[in-house]
Write a protein that binds this DNA or RNA. Structure first.
Lengths: 201, 201
DNA sequence: ACCTGAACACCGTTCAAGT
DNA sequence: ACCTGAACACCGTTCAAGT
């Protein structure tokens, strides 16, 4: 028995049965050993979770930027990151619950520094652009991950302003179900462009 | 014993001892009754949590918009919402873990519809503006709430690009610790202005 | 209708005892 | 050094039994 094997099967367990499925006893039984063996090799449950999170963060590589235009490259980067992370909602949830979301996005922040610099930003402008973009993507992933897990989260504006005098065209647009991805693409494009061109200073 | 009293003390318990502090047994002992009484009045733990969340959502009123300029009013609105929600990180965390974050922001969405319409947006543009702003604020609150709870979450760019050729001015700006509120103000202003003026179409 | 005690199946964790 | 069984203090939940 090694610590690596324990952490590995712990990761499997999380992927198949969710975070709640990872109990010390379930893990031990999957390994074919008594629970106490785990304590000898890795310590308590928090240590196991930490090791699992380490693996997730290390393994997540990210995506390459595409296109020639600076804004387009950054937008494609953010879209790619969001898409890839949404494919593993359970793992993202685990990383978040362990309070290590920021670390997960470190590789993205490095690339963003490079891209925003290439787009002509310098000094504090560039730093702010990186931070703002990072936070926007992080926030979008966190909310969308939850929508993925609990579809009731999806914002339904149905009947939310029944008595209010909202123009019918707007009401129609609000009531219509909007794909989160479409919404993200729309927003990230606006944000990145305004960061690069300097709108709203 | 009434359901109201149970839910009320459950809310107190969450506020004082955190979400983890709310156990059926702790709740029962605080009420001075055996655990089984709770089951008779409100059902299981999930029902208790649901009722607590209902109360939180209902009680959270929001803030009034300030200023005359359309963009400024919306920005102040978002800043106020964020500030108020960050004052109760535990409750926000609970609402989020119960998958009901969207509901919490319903009042804000109503006001946003009004404000973006007053700012001249119509139809799908207005609807998208509302949705994007809503998601941005939600995402920012979720990330900042976690920073509040686990300060290690705060993004430290220290030594993140040691070997990379980052200009010293940018490196300095990145390494400097940036207040999340300053960052939010900077980003929300840019976003709202670009939504209203139509940058990045 | 309302409340209770006893019991069940689960947790994470410890610790003395084995090889 | 490595592994184990037994036990502890906690969970949420059920259910027959009381008034």
């Amino acid at each position: 028995m090694t610590a690596e094997r324990i952490v590995g099967t712990a990761t499997d367990l999380v992927e198949t049965d969710g975070v709640a499925g990872l109990t010390m006893r379930a893990l031990a039984s999957k390994l074919g050993v008594p629970v106490t063996t785990i304590y000898w090799h890795v310590g308590n449950k928090d240590a196991v979770l930490d090791a699992v999170v380490n693996g997730i963060i290390d393994r997540f590589g990210g995506v390459p930027a595409r296109g020639t235009d600076g804004a387009a490259r950054i937008v494609s980067l953010c879209r790619g990151w969001r898409r890839n992370l949404l494919e593993q909602p359970t793992l993202v949830g685990l990383v978040h619950s362990q309070g290590r979301t920021a670390e997960l996005f470190h590789p993205l922040s490095r690339v963003l520094v490079h891209e925003f610099t290439a787009a002509g930003l310098v000094g504090r402008d560039a730093a702010m652009a990186v931070r703002v973009t990072l936070r926007f993507v992080t926030g979008a992933v966190l909310t969308d991950v939850q929508v993925e897990r609990a579809p009731s989260q999806r914002v339904t504006f149905e009947g939310l302003w029944a008595e209010e005098d909202v123009p019918s065209a707007l009401r129609g647009a609000l009531t219509r179900d909007e794909d989160p991805t479409v919404l993200f693409d729309y927003a990230i494009r606006k944000l990145v462009v305004s960061l690069i061109t300097g709108v709203g200073e």
